[in-house]
Design a protein around this nucleic acid. Structure first.
Lengths: 352, 352
DNA sequence: TGAGAGAGTGTTCACGTTCACAACTGCGCA
DNA sequence: TGCGCAGTTGTGAACGTGAACACTCTCTCA
């Protein structure tokens, strides 16, 4: 402990009043080597004698040395930080994504900086990315589920490693996304398989790609079965919106099967149906999307589609790391297939 | 656009092969001033002629200059980044906290780096803080709801600005927390006011301060009413645990009022009660804690306690910023009072 | 014996910024 | 006229690290 102090001042009268964090040079001095040798030990370079390495490591622990990533980033030009831009990380999906991404990133030796934006308009996104760029992040992940967010990406530096999650499938940016369409087809087909003659869909906001993809998958499944899709009921992602739409659905006696674009909507729909005396699944079957932790405890437990957020996060990181290390910004894209989780909200219609 | 290119190479033959980000010196050269003057413009120093300032600003936009916070951090010693250490940001509470904190921080000009840890043991926390320290963050927020996390803080550098959220009330660290005890009292009193002769409590994990605080508040409310508290039923925070405990509660006919330590537990309990044919609120009244977005759509809509996560986040930031600017690590602490949200899960007992 | 290779180490510079200080300007006043 | 002061600008160093390069050994092989 006190040895560090003792060492100070042996060189000259240059006192060191504000106790600085120990730097590589302090370690070097204590170990009796040059700072470059310490640097080599830090970066696991070969060509350092084991004995020297040990002496340096001992000096590091004695001083409580902590590498200064700031300085390293300055000289190498790139930091070991990945910037994430996201909107509402309060929801289960984005929150899971963020956590999973952070886990993977930290295992790969990267720190994660978050910039949440209030709205996903072009300006907000651009500003958030700019904040990251000032910190000289090594790459950026944009969780960009709406079209306006995509536009912002047109004006990004072209050499910036970048991945979108849930972004515009039409764009050329590297993209990792849950296969919305496949999930929706799975849900719809599951209801058809139960014997329903058609399936209604309550969708999320129109400008979300998630919504668009789920609508497409639902429609495709119906058309494959030769069924003319009923009109889409659009809503936002909230239980309240589901409740409102549910009040409509409950009044239509020929509605026996509903695919809700997420579990929150399904929750609201369930409430509306219950209040109208329509039983689930006896009168109406429902499938949701997301598999939030509460879904198994809904009344009845909700059959739903479970996206693998972990896999999405891992894929996004791997695409990004590849860009960072190779230096070339590819147009790679990856799609993660979700899975059906059957529970108790689906049954055969009364009059099959 | 092209002007920047044209400018290049006028000095000497030193070609600039890898197109660097423009630096302060490039701006200076273009504006015909010294780099120091550009720095002054950046930092809003007085004593710059308005005309000069304009010329510099014009040069900045022309080059698309972006300040390098990395370099700035190196020379000033501290970055404009705040590190957050958290465990499971998938849950509604922590996720809300994190988002709210990020919003406030970015308004104050700070970026936020997240390090999530798998477990809240001493080692994991210390390691996460260390990662932040390597990035030379200006301060650290630890969301440390369990005792083992607190211990890690004993070995932190003493001059590090630090705030705990939901940490150990016994410790001297600066702490911002929801008033767990007051919330629990509110819930318990609400049930007593409805006419119940006692209130049972399903608690969270024993090592969480949240659990401890809520137990204390519940117990205090009962004792104020001269009631001997029934045994605590402990669980974790999941609906599954609530369901398990609910199966016990459902079998006890004299249980008419339950305060669940969070909404997820309440959800599981509701399911168990329903399966045993005990009606809520007619047979059993329930109050939860957290007010998750789903709570209003439970069956029945859940009466619960709403903590103000925004206020917690703002308070934590303000405590931290105060430490950062003043340079002294204070023992400040702040407690945010939660609020009761009455819905339909509470009624008078059948035999009042 | 000498050349060459390669391990092990040190020296110097650069990264982009801020800070301390010096220097220049123009003005008011004696 | 000269002095001092305040406003405005520039110069040089420093922050902690990694890269490029140079140097000293030791060993191998012709």
């Amino acid at each position: 402990m006190g040895k560090a102090e003792a060492k100070t001042g042996e060189q000259n009268g240059k006192s060191r009043p504000p106790a600085r964090d120990p730097a590589i040079t302090d370690v070097a001095q204590l170990a009796g080597v040059s700072h470059q040798t310490v640097s080599r030990v830090l970066n696991d370079h070969p060509h350092v004698r084991p004995q020297t390495r040990l002496r340096v490591q001992a000096a590091m622990t004695e001083l409580g040395y902590r590498p200064n990533h700031t300085a390293r980033a300055l000289v190498t030009g790139r930091s070991q930080v990945i910037g994430v831009v996201a909107q509402n990380t309060t929801l289960f999906g984005p929150a899971s994504l963020l956590t999973a991404f952070e886990q993977s990133a930290s295992e790969a030796g990267f720190a994660v900086a978050v910039a949440s934006v209030r709205a996903l308009d072009r300006r907000s996104i651009a500003e958030a990315v700019d904040r990251h760029l000032r910190q000289r992040v090594a790459g950026v992940v944009v969780i960009a589920p709406v079209a306006s967010a995509g536009e912002a990406l047109d004006h990004m530096p072209t050499d910036l490693p970048l991945v979108c999650i849930d972004g515009d499938p039409q764009r050329t940016n590297p993209l990792v996304t849950v296969d919305q369409s496949a999930g929706a087809s799975l849900a719809t087909q599951h209801l058809l398989d139960a014997g329903h003659s058609t399936v209604w869909h309550v969708s999320g906001p129109d400008d979300w790609f998630d919504s668009v993809g789920r609508i497409a998958g639902w429609r495709a499944a119906l058309e494959r079965a030769g069924i003319d899709p009923p009109p889409v009921l659009s809503a936002d992602w909230s239980p309240a919106a589901g409740y409102r739409v549910g009040q409509l659905l409950a009044r239509m006696p020929d509605v026996t099967a509903v695919f809700a674009a997420n579990d929150h909507l399904a929750l609201g729909i369930l409430k509306a149906l219950r209040e109208f005396g329509r039983l689930v699944p006896q009168d109406v079957s429902i499938v949701g999307f997301d598999d939030i932790p509460e879904a198994a405890y809904f009344v009845p437990p909700l059959t739903t589609i479970r996206p693998d957020f972990d896999a999405v996060a891992r894929a996004a990181l791997s695409v990004l790391l590849h860009q960072i290390s190779s230096g070339e910004v590819s147009g790679e894209r990856e799609t993660i297939a979700p899975v059906l989780v059957p529970r108790d909200s689906v049954a055969a219609p009364r009059t099959a």
